[in-house]
Design a protein around this nucleic acid. Structure first.
Length: 393
RNA sequence: GUGGGUAUGGCGCAGUUGGUUAGCGCGCCAGAUUGUGGUUCUGGAGACCGUGGGUUCGAGUCCCACUAUCCACC
């Protein structure tokens, strides 16, 4: 299923075959938590922004519309008319990020709905059943994501429990995939490595889960408050202990620079809310760095967001117009910005794949990291000029 | 022309019986956001309070004149 086509040091160019299509990696998964990419992006738009994989969420879909609804509607692919592979996050992260009064026990987690506060319980079996109902291409294991500030003892205890949960996830997934009424009997399961920033726990856990022959391996619990250096150190430490013949997934990461660094450390899959969430706020990614389109200086800027970009926003509209739409609270403004950012991310991944194929990823990474700084330094000098009165603001 | 009201940062307004560095919203600027917070959060710049006099130890707050503007009435 997973085949490495080319390697450059630890960076991998690979492909991953699924029942819903073959994924070319490294890949960015476009976040559609509640079965919709926020910003009025339809599945019809996916082709023109170059997406390969959509990511949705077990916890959110369980609450609304309910996984039973999705099951009755024939699974998530049919429900949202999506032809691409879909990965569902297990809900483990949401239990910890959205709920305050939660009780974690061996059997699972007791918590309250972030929508109406009613009592809920989710454990490995529940998460697998919901994901089986949703019938995503790839299901994520139900894990605990400990705080970056948690101490060694707590993280060790938590990770041991996450390992036991993973065993239960695998067992339940095998059972569900063999049931006659299951929509996707080939549903894949990815395990998740945890251990915060403790090398010993990360490595021991990576070894444990590597023996379990899962379909892929994620590194979780990063980008939750630790520094970039700590995150890269964890990747340097743990990725070598994950199976070479399985895809790796860095959950929730990240900035374009984070992605380049992580690809360089052997990661295949990424997802992040940045391009969509930041897009909604006018924070736009370009090869020269990011711009905040809400700034007054773009009021009379007739250039596209990024010169030479082929996205639906840049092909037709000016910064001035899109800024006006954002300022006016028009849905179209958000939509165009989200389309641009996702196009940027998906095409960055395409460029990364090409660079690895051609054996020039190291140079590509270096050039891109330098290029990302261009706008920032240019804008700093521009602000300086204005402050000095050398240029009109 | 007469009577009344209002004049406070770009805009809209608060400013208690006159008392230390004049507040707020919007706008503007800069950050933040990493297994989604759909318009969020945190900072910052900017006004010598229409103009000129006066009363007072002290005036955005009181008095006079002028100017601008709004409403009503001839």
């Amino acid at each position: 299923m997973y085949k490495i086509l080319k390697k450059e040091n630890r960076a991998k160019r690979a492909e991953f075959k699924t029942v819903h299509g073959t994924i070319q990696t490294p890949v960015f998964m476009n976040v559609a938590t509640v079965a919709a990419i926020k910003g009025a992006v339809s599945t019809e738009d996916l082709e023109q922004i170059g997406t390969q994989v959509v990511l949705s969420n077990t916890y959110h879909l369980h609450l609304r519309p309910g996984d039973d609804v999705i099951y009755k509607m024939g699974g998530l692919h049919k429900f949202m008319n999506c032809k691409q592979p879909i990965l569902t996050d297990s809900g483990g992260f949401q239990v910890f990020s959205l709920s305050e009064n939660r009780r974690i026990r061996e059997e699972g987690v007791y918590f309250r709905s972030h929508i109406d506060g009613h009592k809920l319980f989710m454990g490995p079996e529940e998460s697998m059943r919901i994901q089986s109902h949703i019938a995503s291409t790839i299901a994520m294991a139900f894990d605990e994501c400990p705080s970056a500030r948690a101490d060694h003892d707590y993280v060790q205890m938590s990770v041991d429990r996450t390992t036991r949960w993973l065993e239960r996830c695998k067992k339940e997934m095998n059972r569900l995939n063999s049931l006659p009424d299951t929509i996707n009997k080939n549903q894949l399961l990815f395990g998740i490595n945890q251990g915060a920033i403790f090398d010993d726990i990360r490595i021991e856990h990576a070894k444990r889960i590597s023996e379990m022959d899962l379909d892929g391996y994620a590194v979780g619990g990063l980008a939750v408050g630790e520094t970039h250096e700590e995150m890269y150190h964890v990747l340097d430490t743990v990725v070598p202990f994950l199976p070479e013949d399985k895809p790796t997934y860095l959950m929730g990461v990240g900035t374009p620079a984070n992605i380049l660094e992580a690809v360089d450390r052997g990661i295949d899959f990424f997802d992040c809310v940045y391009p969509s969430r930041n897009g909604r706020h006018g924070h736009l990614y370009t090869k020269k760095g990011h711009i905040n389109l809400m700034n007054a200086k773009y009021e009379l800027d007739d250039r596209p967001i990024e010169e030479g970009c082929g996205c639906p926003a840049c092909r037709r509209y000016s910064r001035s117009y899109i800024r006006h739409l954002l300022k006016s609270g028009e849905m179209l403004g958000m939509r165009l910005c989200v389309l641009h950012n996702l196009y940027f991310y998906n095409h960055l991944m395409e460029d990364i794949r090409t660079a690895i194929e051609e054996g020039r990823f190291a140079k590509f990474k270096k050039d891109m990291l330098e290029s990302f700084l261009e706008y920032d330094s240019a804008e700093i000098s521009e602000r300086y000029d204005i402050a000095k009165g050398w240029k009109k603001g």
